Simulated assay, not measured.
Amino acid sequence: MYLEGVKFDGLAVLEKLISSSPVLEDLTVITYPMDYVEVICVRSQSLKSFGLESQRNPEEEQDPDVVIDAPRLEYMSVSDYRPERFVIRKIGPYAKVDVDVMFDVDVMFDDSDLDDPLEAKKIRKFLFGISKFHEVAISAGTLEVIHEYSQVGKLPKFLNLTRLDASLVKSSWEYLPAFLGCCTNLYSLILELDRILEREEIELSPVPQCVLSSLHSLQLKTPQTVSKMMLVSYFRNNCKALRKILLSGL
Score class of each variant (00 low, 15 high):
M1F: 10
G5I: 01
F8G: 00
D9K: 11
L14N: 09
E15C: 12
E15V: 06
E15P: 06
K16H: 14
K16N: 15
I18P: 02
S21Q: 07
S21K: 02
V23W: 08
E25A: 09
T28Y: 14
V29P: 03
D35I: 07
D35W: 01
V37D: 05
V37I: 15
C41M: 11
R43L: 13
S44K: 04
S46K: 02
K48S: 08
S49P: 03
G51Y: 09
L52V: 02
L52F: 08
E53L: 12
Q55N: 15
R56K: 15
E60V: 13
V66H: 03
I68M: 03
A70D: 04
P71N: 04
R72E: 11
R72N: 15
L73Y: 05
L73D: 04
V78T: 00
R85W: 08
F86Q: 05
I88W: 00
I88F: 08
K90C: 12
K90T: 13
G92S: 10
A95K: 00
A95Y: 03
K96L: 06
K96D: 06
F103A: 05
V105D: 09
S112Y: 11
S112F: 09
D113M: 10
L114F: 10
D115A: 12
D116S: 14
P117W: 01
P117F: 04
L118G: 13
L118W: 10
K125D: 13
K125R: 15
F128G: 10
G129Q: 09
K132A: 06
K132W: 02
F133K: 05
H134R: 10
I138L: 05
I138S: 01
I146D: 00
H147S: 11
E148D: 14
L155P: 05
P156C: 04
L161W: 04
L161K: 08
T162S: 03
T162A: 02
A166M: 04
S167R: 05
L168K: 02
V169N: 11
S172D: 13
L176W: 07
L176T: 02
P177C: 03
F179V: 03
C182D: 02
C183P: 00
L186I: 08
L186R: 00
Y187A: 11
S188K: 08
E192T: 15
R199G: 07
E200C: 09
E203Q: 12
E203I: 14
L204R: 15
C210D: 01
L212E: 13
S213G: 05
S214N: 03
S217V: 11
P223Q: 01
P223C: 04
T225Y: 12
T225A: 12
V226S: 15
S227W: 08
M229W: 11
S233I: 11
Y234P: 02
Y234H: 10
F235L: 05
R236K: 14
N237I: 03
A241L: 07
K244A: 10
